[in-house]
Design a protein around this nucleic acid. Structure first.
Lengths: 251, 251
DNA sequence: ACCATAGTATGGTCTGACCACATTTCCCCA
DNA sequence: TGGGGAAATGTGGTCAGACCATACTATGGT
C-alpha cells in the first residue's frame, strides 16, 4: 500500500487560470495582448469549453480580461487592466451583504484621501484639473451633479499621487459611497461649506503643505459624513466609542 | 421561492448575478444562508445551468459565495464573506501583468500600516497577540518562518483597528508581497534590526502614542524595502527622489 | 442497536449543437 | 474596372442533456 497520490482537488477552470497566469509570467503577455479563442484554448488544455469559459468569467471579474464577440482584430479575449471596476463590484456586494459597514468604508476612504492629498501636496498635483473641477462644482444645480464634479476633484487628487493601486481603491470607494454622498449633499442643503473645504484643500496642495491638506480633507469628510467616521485625530486620544460589535465574522 | 424573473437582454450570467444581488437586498440574505441549487436556479430564472454556473464563478471570485459538493446541510452554494481572498487574487494578477508596480503596492501597504497602527495605539490593541508573535519571531530559523510570524504581528495590528475593509486590504497586500518579504529578510541576513523595530512599534502602541507608532512603522518598512517607498514624511518635504522609474517592471 | 448497502441531491465536467454578431471574402453586376 | 451586396467565417453567448465524484440519507437485514 504505497504510492498513493492525493486526489485531484483543483477544478478544471482553476487549472486554466493557473496556466494562463503562468503564460503571462513566462511569455511576458501584456495589456492589449490577445488570448487564444475559447475553443482553441479548450483543445490545447484538454478541457471543455465550459471550463475555459468559467476561467474567463473569473479573469473578467478580476479586471484582467475583456471579451468581444464578432470577428476581426478586435474580437476575442484581451488582457486589460481594470482593477477599479473589480474593486467596485467587490465593495458593492460586501456592503450589500452587510459584511462591511458604511463606517468602515468611510474610514477607509478617509485614510486613502488623506494619504493622497499629502502626496499631492508634496509631489505636486495637476492644479488645473482641480481648479476646473471646482469651477464646475460651483455651477451645479442638483446634488447628483455636484457629487459628480466633487468626485472628479477628489479623483484628480488621487491620480496626483501617481499610485494606481490607491487611485483604484479611491475610485471604487467613491463608487460605493455615491448614493450616500448624494444623500449627504441633499441633507446639508447648502454646499458652501463643502466648497470652502475644497478651496482650503486646493490652497494647501498649491502651497505644498501636506499637514494642512490632510487636516482639511479630514474636516471635509467629517462635514459630509457627520458621526460616521471614528478615525482618531492626533489631538484627541480619548475616542474609544464604538468598539463593541467586533466579533463579527470577516472570513 | 418565487419572485424570480425570466432573463434576457444582457449576458445571461449578469442577470443571474443581478437577481441574486436583488434577493440579497430584498430578502435580507446573510452570510451562511444557502442559495438554491444550480439546476433549480436555472429553471426558475429560465436560463441554462451553464449561465448559472458562470454567475457562481463570479460571485465566488468576489468572495461572497462558496460551493460545496455532495449532499446534506453543508452542500450547495452559500453566502460567505471573504473579501481578502478576492483582493489577493486581484493584486496577484495585476502585479503579474505589471499593471501595478512593487513600489505602488509597498506604498499602499505603508499607508494602511500607518493608519492601522495609529488606530491600534489610540483604541487599544490586543497586546498579547503582538507579544506572542514577537516571541515566536525571536525563535525562528528561516526567513520564511520569520515572515510568517511577522505577518501575524502586523495582521494583529490591522485587526486591532476594528476595520474589516482595511484589514482585508492589509491581508491581501501582505499576501502579494510575501515572496518579496522573504527576499528582503534573506538579503538583510540579520533580523535584529527588524526585531528592534517591532519592539519599538509594540512600545508605542502600549503607550498609546500614535505618532511614534506611525513613525516606527515607516522606519520599519523603509528598512525592509529600502529605496522602494517614496512616501513623504511629515518632517521632510524635500523628498522628490525616485520620481523617475514609474515604468519599472517587477515581473 | 448496529452496520452495510442502496438511494439521492449536489456541484464538476464534458459534448455537441445552435445563435448573434462583426468582419472578411467573394462574386455578380453596373 | 469598380462597387455593392451576399455569403463565408470566426468569435463569444447560450442551451440541452448526459455522466461522474461526492457525501449525506434512508433502508433493511442482522
Amino acid at each position: 500500500m504505497s504510492g498513493w497520490q492525493p486526489v485531484r482537488r483543483t477544478r478544471a477552470f482553476e487549472d486554466v487560470i493557473a496556466q494562463i497566469e503562468r503564460r503571462i509570467a513566462d511569455d511576458g503577455l501584456r495589456v492589449g495582448d490577445r488570448l487564444p479563442g475559447e475553443r482553441q484554448l479548450a483543445e490545447q488544455l484538454r478541457v471543455s469549453r465550459s471550463s475555459v469559459r468559467e476561467a474567463m468569467r473569473v479573469l473578467e471579474t478580476l479586471g484582467v480580461v475583456s471579451s468581444q464577440v464578432g470577428r476581426g482584430p478586435d474580437a476575442g479575449a484581451f488582457l486589460i487592466s481594470r482593477p477599479a471596476e473589480a474593486l467596485s463590484d467587490l465593495l458593492r456586494l460586501h456592503l450589500g451583504l452587510s459584511n462591511l459597514s458604511l463606517e468602515e468604508v468611510v474610514d477607509a476612504r478617509l485614510m486613502i484621501e488623506k494619504w493622497s492629498v499629502s502626496h499631492a501636496a508634496v509631489h505636486g498635483a495637476d492644479l488645473s484639473a482641480l481648479t476646473s473641477a471646482l469651477e464646475r462644482m460651483d455651477a451645479t444645480a442638483t446634488a447628483e451633479e455636484f457629487v459628480e464634479y466633487d468626485t472628479a476633484f477628489h479623483v484628480a487628487i488621487a491620480e496626483a499621487s501617481g499610485n494606481r493601486l490607491t487611485t483604484a481603491m479611491m475610485l471604487s470607494l467613491r463608487d460605493s459611497l455615491r448614493r450616500y454622498a448624494v444623500e449627504a449633499v441633499e441633507r446639508l442643503g447648502d454646499t458652501s461649506g463643502l466648497m470652502a473645504d475644497h478651496r482650503r484643500i486646493h490652497r494647501a496642495i498649491a502651497a505644498g503643505d501636506a499637514a494642512e491638506a490632510s487636516a482639511a480633507v479630514e474636516d471635509h469628510l467629517r462635514r459630509a459624513y457627520p458621526g460616521i467616521s471614528r478615525s482618531p485625530r492626533a489631538e484627541d486620544h480619548e475616542g474609544l466609542e464604538g468598539q463593541q460589535g467586533r466579533s463579527d465574522r470577516i472570513g
